[in-house]
C-alpha cells in the first residue's frame, strides 16, 4: 500500500471557475453582489425595493437561485429588473459553474450591477465563491438573534449584514444588541444595516452601500 500526499482543494474546480467569473466581471466593470440568507428573510422583497430606487440609476441584472419555480424571477421582472432564474432541482447552493453558464448568455458589459440571490440556506452557499465582488448576509427579526453564532460560516464570509423586518421589532423578543454582538464575534467590524421593506426604513442606506460598490467597481469616486 502506498501513501500519496495530495494537498488538493476539494472545491478547486469551483474556485477556479469563480476566479474566471471574477476576471470577466472586472473586465466588464460589472459589480457582482452575492446575497445569502435563510429562507424567508426577505431577499426578494429587498431586491424589489432596490429596483424601485436604483433601476433608473444603474443597469441591473439579477440571477436568482431557487430549488424549484420561476416565482422570484417573475417578481423581479415585474419590478422592472432583468432577471434570470436558476432552478437547482434539489441542490442547496449556487456554484461558480452555474453562474458562468448564465453569464455566458448575456453581455456582462451591458450591466453595472449583478445581484445574485442565492438559495435560502445559511450553511451550504457560504463556502462556494461565485466570483462576486462582495457578499451580503440578510438576516431578519423573525429569526433567532443567535443566528450569527449558530451559522458562523455565512456571517464570517460576508462584507455586509442587513437586518431586515425591523418594523416587527416591537412585537418580537429579538434582541438587537445580542444579534450585533454575535455578528461582531464572527466578523469584526462588519457593518449592520437595519431595513424594513414594509416601511422603507433603512433602504436609503442599503442603496447607498450598493451605490458605493458599483462606483468602486467602475473606478468612480463615491458621492460626497
Amino acid at each position: 500500500m502506498a501513501k500519496l500526499p495530495l494537498g488538493r482543494n476539494v472545491r478547486g474546480r469551483n474556485d477556479e471557475t469563480a476566479a474566471e467569473n471574477r476576471r470577466r466581471f472586472a473586465e466588464a466593470r460589472l459589480c457582482a453582489v452575492n446575497l445569502l440568507s435563510s429562507p424567508g428573510s426577505g431577499k426578494t422583497s429587498l431586491l424589489e425595493r432596490t429596483a424601485e430606487r436604483m433601476k433608473d440609476r444603474w443597469r441591473i441584472l439579477v440571477i436568482d437561485g431557487d430549488v424549484e419555480t420561476e416565482r422570484d424571477a417573475q417578481r423581479l421582472r415585474a419590478a422592472g429588473l432583468e432577471a434570470i432564474q436558476i432552478q437547482t432541482h434539489g441542490a442547496c447552493h449556487l456554484n461558480a459553474m452555474m453562474i458562468a453558464e448564465q453569464v455566458a448568455t448575456v453581455d456582462p458589459a451591458a450591466f453595472d450591477l449583478l445581484l445574485i440571490e442565492n438559495i435560502g440556506n445559511l450553511v451550504c452557499p457560504s463556502n462556494y465563491d461565485l466570483g462576486e465582488s462582495s457578499r451580503v448576509v440578510v438576516a431578519s427579526t423573525t429569526e433567532g438573534d443567535d443566528k450569527p453564532i449558530k451559522y458562523p460560516e455565512a456571517y464570517h464570509t460576508a462584507d455586509l449584514c442587513v437586518l431586515n423586518k425591523v418594523d416587527l421589532l416591537p412585537y418580537l423578543p429579538f434582541d438587537v444588541a445580542a444579534f450585533e454582538a454575535g455578528v461582531r464575534r464572527v466578523k469584526a467590524d462588519m457593518p449592520v444595516l437595519h431595513t424594513s421593506c414594509t416601511t422603507g426604513a433603512g433602504l436609503e442606506a442599503w442603496c447607498a452601500w450598493l451605490d458605493g460598490q458599483v462606483r468602486a467597481t467602475r473606478g468612480e469616486p463615491g458621492k460626497s
Binding site: 476539494v10 454582538a181 464575534r185
Partner: peptide, 28 residues
C-alpha cells in the same frame, strides 16, 4: 460560542478558522 470571555468576562470575542476542505493524502 461562549457568551463571554472565560478569563476576563469581555463579550468582545472573535471566532477564527479556515473555510478550506482539502484532500491531504490517499493510501492506495
Amino acid at each position: 460560542g461562549p457568551a463571554a470571555c472565560a478569563s476576563c468576562g469581555s463579550i468582545d470575542l472573535e471566532l477564527a478558522g479556515s473555510s478550506g476542505l482539502d484532500i491531504v493524502s490517499l493510501e492506495v
